[in-house]
Design a protein around this nucleic acid. Structure first.
Length: 895
RNA sequence: GGGCAAUUAGCUCAGCUGGUUCAGAGCGUCUGCCUUACAAGCAGAAUGUCAGCGGUUCAAAUCCGUUAUUGCCCACCA
């Protein structure tokens, strides 16, 4: 074995081996545990490669999957990717523009979609590769894509069923329009920016020429789409105008003054509001209340249309400037003020969102949301950390209808065909409705209809596609073959746990519950674990769109997959964020990769384990024989520790406390096993005496496997070649009888002697090679631990006894129930000792003061539990002992 | 504006049911070691008004209120 763990070849070797042995596939229903364990991956978008946030998410899933596989459950993890509608189309269109100076219209729908498929193939391959190198034990034969035939079938069935039930409807609604991508975008695909704008006040002239109403606006170009001006019904200034007619400047359309106490705040601005129902959400609502005309003044690309008269063809700022100029020229402009406002921008195109009236498809959410809320309120679905349930409930509680249509080319095309005449057909797989505008909407379950598919009709397909979350919402059951009645659904549905990020709780988690209840009549998972968000060194969320993503393959290359996984696991605490500063490093071949000191812990730990195994290898004893030689205190101690850790790990898993799991195993291996037990056994190791050491390491490999699958499998193959592979063999269970607090305490007390001597060594810089002696004043019998104490503290010999005189010129240290003296004639420095003793005394005395204060407090003695009071008294005695002994030493030294 | 969190050592973070076994870990720093598993290591050491203020309690890093700063989610006024 090499002195250092070299991850590269070993990772390759085991990826191949596990794959060949089909270890990632379910073991079948005949396996030991009756329960199944299944997970579906939150499908990464094919917009780009994965970053460390995904690595975290998938590490946690893999840890759970490997753990449960070792528990003997029939285990399945389904991998896959998401077509991510608008996001993917946007990146491909962007590249098309950059590289070929072409728009999608230059290519046409078919060609663009072809290009996106090519992009998807490239990134799906990359993502899959990333996941594999991370060690993700997915069943790769079941890999899905939200746009593949299996998922497509599920989408068609889900849509058809909802349509038939009347839960999907079409209507004209005000949507967030991306004028660059020519599509509606969801509320949650918009971010808001504060910009410095203006607040223009102008005259709204009365039609009869008798005067005007002053109206203020931040968006003067929308004047052209005004269909009313609203005032507060109780505003004395404007009461007289209610019902009167105004003329829209420039276009001279007649509109009326309405009274509305919802829209209008008397105190704000001029107290009068222009109403543009087709281009503002509040005005839209007002329009509905007053049955106002909805006048659209925009084209799809955001330019003003023919309704804008002379301004037709202008867009955005230009349109605004022109309108302002026009107002000024005609003497209508009263005032311009600076005004800060929020502007909505599209996540995808970064351009300003225009509220826009168009035909869209919606899912009616009220009933569906209610049921999904129930599942969480009743505890049927449990969030970890629990606080995220609130997130879910708040959002669903709004019960807002879900706009599912997107004016894109990449996605599931809506399975609706329009007909102007009423269909006369009776087929179970075809359903139709009459829309608000009189059209007939024909929905087909599986067959793609063409123009003449149904006799007597001229059919035209809706060009829109579905919101990408529509297919994502089906993911847990679509991946398992719904609507088919598949074996997978029977065995693995519902899934066991969903591991995901908190920012998609509403977008995705909630909708999966909704669709699963609707389609399967079951919840899709009972547990939701929300993993922390990875931030970069500046505290910004790591994401593809921020461009601050770090490729996990960089980290794997530099530190190994196990190190990456170990650190990811350690990061998962109850907290919601984890900062991960990275820096660049140039490689020998000239490439630059991201590295981070954070991962050294994992690498060092792997190396530690590797070297422990390397040391043990010549002395290894077979673990299969089962005979453990448990003789000494340290043997009992290490067994107790081992079983404590096994129990702790189980508990950590049950509560999704991943960092606790990592920390438990880390400290067991490094501190208990390596620094202590192995050091104790080192001197006398043999095949006969190593049974317990072998057993402990063997078990540690099991405990560590979910976090560090590669190195554990490799070490197992080296040390225990006849054993079953770690990935499949049984998870260790704790033997409570071997957990012994008394033994652990005894051991710690003796170890305190070792530490006391070492501390003296440190104080006087005594080289480890220099043997020293000690006198230990204690009532304990140290005979059976003599060798251990000598070896670990570098003593050539020591005396112990209850009433020993301490040697002259000795440094001292207080230990539980006694004192350690190290004679250091010629080395001892009185000043050093005196200073140390004084400090020790000072510390103990301040402690004593606080303990005394507490114990002399009557209410404390009266109210605190007896155990606590006894504990405090015990502490007081210990501290008094320290002071007493230290002062005795001090007196001698000062003589 | 509503909600959720965070603030603990120079850095990144633990600290679950309140009680000096709770003030910790890793990195970094300092001292001494190439001790025949490991220098990616070993041994020792230093470092904190647990953000501020107030409250509850016999007892607060921990519970409550409040202020400040930071992050995220949701909703947004012409």
């Amino acid at each position: 074995m090499e002195t250092r763990y070299n991850h590269k070849e070993i990772e390759e070797k085991w990826l191949k081996n596990w794959d060949e042995q089909k270890n990632f596939k379910p073991r079948g229903t005949q396996c030991a545990a009756s329960k199944h364990f299944s997970v579906v991956i939150p499908p990464p978008n094919v917009t780009g490669a994965l970053h460390l946030g995904h690595a975290l998410n998938n590490t946690i899933q893999d840890i759970l999957v490997r753990y449960n596989r070792k528990l003997g459950k029939n285990t399945l993890w389904i991998p896959g990717t998401d077509h991510a509608g608008i996001a993917t189309q946007a990146v491909v269109e962007k590249r098309l523009m950059q590289e070929e100076k072409k728009t999608r219209h230059d290519l046409g729908r078919e060609e663009l979609v072809k290009r996106i498929w090519e992009w998807k193939d490239e990134y799906e391959t990359r993502i899959t590769n990333q996941l594999k190198l991370l060690g993700s034990s997915c069943d790769w034969d079941k890999q899905r894509f939200t746009l593949d035939p299996i998922c497509t079938k599920a989408v068609r069935h889900a849509f058809f069923n909802l349509f038939k039930k009347g839960l999907i409807y079409r209507g004209k609604r005000l949507v967030n329009w991306d004028t660059h991508l020519h599509t509606a975008v969801a509320d949650d695909e918009i971010y808001h920016e504060t910009v410095k704008g203006h607040f223009w006040t102008f005259k709204y002239p009365l039609a009869d020429g008798s005067g005007y109403i002053p109206v203020a606006t931040t968006r003067p170009e929308t004047i052209l789409g005004d269909t009313a001006v609203a005032v507060h019904p109780e505003d004395e200034r404007y009461k007289q105008f209610i019902g009167k007619t105004l003329l829209v400047p420039f276009v001279n359309r007649e509109i009326s003054v309405i009274a509305d106490d919802i829209l209008v705040d008397k105190e704000f601005g001029t107290g009068s509001v222009k109403v543009t129902p087709a281009h503002d959400p509040n005005d839209y609502a007002t329009g509905l209340r007053h049955k106002l005309p909805m006048l659209n003044i925009l084209n799809e690309d955001g330019t003003l249309n023919e309704n804008a008269g002379e301004f037709k063809g202008l867009k955005g700022e230009k349109a605004r400037a022109a309108v302002v100029e026009g107002l000024e020229k005609s003497g209508l402009l009263l005032k311009v003020e600076d005004h800060e406002m929020q502007v909505g921008k599209s996540d995808r195109s970064k351009t300003i969102i225009e509220p826009y009236l168009s035909d869209q498809w919606f899912v009616k959410m009220d009933m569906l949301a209610e049921r999904a809320m129930q599942a969480v309120e009743s505890g049927e679905i449990k969030f970890t950390p629990a606080r995220y349930a609130k997130n879910y409930l708040n959002w669903l509680g709004e019960k807002r209808d879900w706009c599912i249509s997107r004016q894109l080319w990449w996605g599931h095309q809506i399975p609706i065909w329009y007909s102007s005449t009423r269909p006369n057909i009776n087929r179970p797989d075809i359903h139709y409705f009459q829309a608000e505008n009189g059209d007939w909407l024909v929905c087909s379950l599986e067959e793609d209809l063409d123009e003449n598919s149904i006799e007597g009709l001229k059919l035209v397909r809706d060009p829109d596609v579905l919101d990408t979350w529509f297919s994502s919402a089906l993911w847990p059951h679509s991946t398992m073959g719904w609507p088919g009645e598949t074996e997978d659904l029977k065995e693995f549905y519902p899934t066991s746990v969903l591991v995901t990020a908190r920012d998609i709780i509403s977008l995705w988690v909630a909708r999966m519950v909704v669709f699963s209840q609707e389609n399967m009549d079951k919840i899709p998972f009972s547990d939701v674990y929300i993993n922390p968000t990875i931030l970069d060194g500046n505290g910004r969320r790591m994401s593809k769109s921020h461009g601050n993503g770090v490729d996990p393959l960089d980290i794997i290359e530099k530190y190994g997959a196990d190190s990456l996984r170990f650190v990811m696991c350690s990061i998962c605490t109850e907290n919601q964020d984890a900062r991960l500063p990275v820096k660049k490093e140039k490689q020998e071949d000239g490439r630059e990769i991201n590295i981070s000191e954070k991962f050294e812990v994992g690498r060092n730990f792997g190396n530690k384990l590797w070297n422990a195994a390397r040391f043990l290898k010549p002395h290894i004893s077979s673990v299969e024989s089962g005979e453990l030689r448990v003789e000494s205190l340290e043997d009992k101690w290490v067994l107790s520790r081992l079983n404590t850790v096994i129990r702790g790990v189980r508990n950590a898993f049950e509560n999704y406390r991943f960092s606790e799991y990592a920390s438990l195993v880390y400290h067991f291996v490094w501190d208990d096993l390596c620094s202590r037990y192995l050091e104790i056994k080192k001197g006398e190791i043999s095949k006969e005496s190593s049974t317990l050491l072998s057993h402990s390491l063997y078990t540690a490999l099991d405990l560590l496997h979910p976090i560090m699958p590669f190195i554990t499998e490799e070490l197992n193959a080296i040390l225990f070649p006849n054993s079953e592979r770690v990935i499949l063999r049984e998870w260790p269970s704790a033997d409570e009888n071997l957990i012994n607090a008394e033994i652990e305490k005894q051991f710690e007390d003796i170890f305190a002697i070792v530490e006391a001597v070492r501390s003296v060594r440190g104080r006087y810089s005594i080289a480890p090679s220099q043997k020293i002696t000690a006198t230990i004043r204690t009532s304990a019998n140290l005979e059976s631990s003599r060798n251990m104490i000598k070896d670990l503290s570098g003593l050539s010999e020591f005396d112990f006894g209850e009433n020993l005189q301490h040697p002259a010129f000795s440094a001292s240290a207080v230990i539980p129930g006694g004192e350690v003296f190290v004679p250091l004639e010629g080395i001892l420095n009185k000043e050093t000792e005196i200073a140390r003793l004084k400090k020790e005394i000072e510390k103990a005395e301040s402690f004593i003061t606080s303990l005394n204060k507490k114990l002399s407090n009557e209410s404390f003695v009266k109210n605190a539990p007896v155990a606590v009071i006894d504990g405090e008294r015990q502490k007081l005695a210990t501290q008094k002992d320290i002071v007493e002994k230290s002062q005795a030493m001090l007196r001698e030294l000062e003589q």
